[in-house]
Amino acid sequence: MSEPNVPLRVVLVDDQSLLRMGFRLVLEGADIEVVGEANDGAAGVRMVRELAPDVVLMDVRMPVMDGIEATRLITSETDSKVIILTTFDLDEYAFSGLQAGASAFMLKDAEPEELVRAVQVVSEGESIVAPRVTARLVEEYVKSAGQQKHSETNIYAQKVELLTPREQDTAKAIAEGLSNAEIAQQFFVSETTVKTHVRSILSKLHLRDRVQVVVFAYESGMVCPGHIEG
């Protein structure tokens, strides 16, 4: 997260120069600094290592190295947050990007204010973009993947057991797309208490942010496909 009064720093990774130009104009118009641009995943990874931006806008279909592998490297090696750019909201590449460690995904044809807000929210690390859409995306691909292998199921069960009952309830609520305020209201606790539970969940499960909690909740079976309303 950037210091107060210091512009957010963003790297754009997309093989279409016109799209990068459009994103740059939108972001710079909102006082967000675009510190670098790359036209393939490998160049993007090198740039992020060098420049350490707050947020990376990452296309998925690119030459040399696709955005999924680039996201995996960036999120495992740096503190930069990644937003996956996709054409369709229910896109297998978007789901793969979330599995690789991306903090959110958004459509390439999003409105300018949506792009700006996405960068701001993800840089804060306290929320995710379009949580209910993200939940439906995760649900769709967990459902299509079928049953987990027995060994994977055991590993997930062990991880779930690390959480207290209230932390498990909080993780399920996050997977439903609820905000901290909504979770606090549902469980009749303070928002500060919810934030404490969220920090504990992230620490115990070694997850980067809330969107990774959504992925974990579905893949572990804590939340079942079909649970989220449309």
Rank of each mutant, 00 (worst) to 15 (best):
T153E: 14
D89K: 12
N39K: 11
L202S: 08
R46S: 15
D31A: 13
A130W: 11
G29L: 02
R166W: 10
V122T: 08
D79Y: 06
G230D: 14
V211P: 03
V55K: 11
Y156T: 07
Q212H: 08
D14M: 00
G44L: 10
Q158E: 15
V35G: 00
I201G: 02
F88H: 15
F188D: 15
R166Q: 15
S103T: 02
V60G: 06
G29I: 00
V35E: 00
V211T: 13
L51I: 09
K195N: 14
A70R: 05
E219T: 10
P53S: 01
P53Y: 03
C224Y: 13
S220W: 05
L162T: 06
A43S: 15
D14Y: 01
A102K: 05
F95I: 03
S17C: 01
V34H: 04
S2G: 03
S179Q: 06
R49G: 12
V138P: 09
T75S: 12
T71Y: 06
E37V: 10
N5Y: 12
S151C: 07
S17R: 11
D79M: 08
E219W: 00
G230C: 09
E229N: 13
R49S: 06
M65N: 05
T134Q: 11
Q147D: 15
I68L: 01
T78E: 09
I155K: 15
E111G: 10
A102E: 02
G101I: 03
I32L: 01
E28T: 07
P165Q: 09
V48M: 03
P4A: 07
D91E: 07
I228M: 13
T153P: 01
I83D: 01
R210Y: 03
V26R: 02
L25F: 11
F23P: 02
L8V: 03
A100D: 07
E152D: 14
R61M: 14
V194R: 04
R136E: 09
H150Q: 13
D169N: 15
L51Y: 01
L73Q: 15
H206A: 13
A110W: 05
G41Y: 09
V138G: 08
V142M: 03
Y93P: 01
M1F: 08
L207Q: 08
L85A: 10
T170L: 00
E124Q: 15
A38W: 09
P53A: 05
Q168M: 12
V82Y: 10
L162Y: 12
F95N: 01
A94C: 05
T170S: 10
K108P: 06
G36M: 07
I128H: 14
L207S: 06
A118N: 04
Q168F: 06
H206C: 06
M58F: 10
L90W: 09
E191N: 12
V198T: 11
T192E: 13
G22R: 00
A181W: 02
N39P: 09
P63Y: 10
G177Y: 05
H197P: 05
I68V: 15
T196F: 13
P225W: 01
A38S: 14
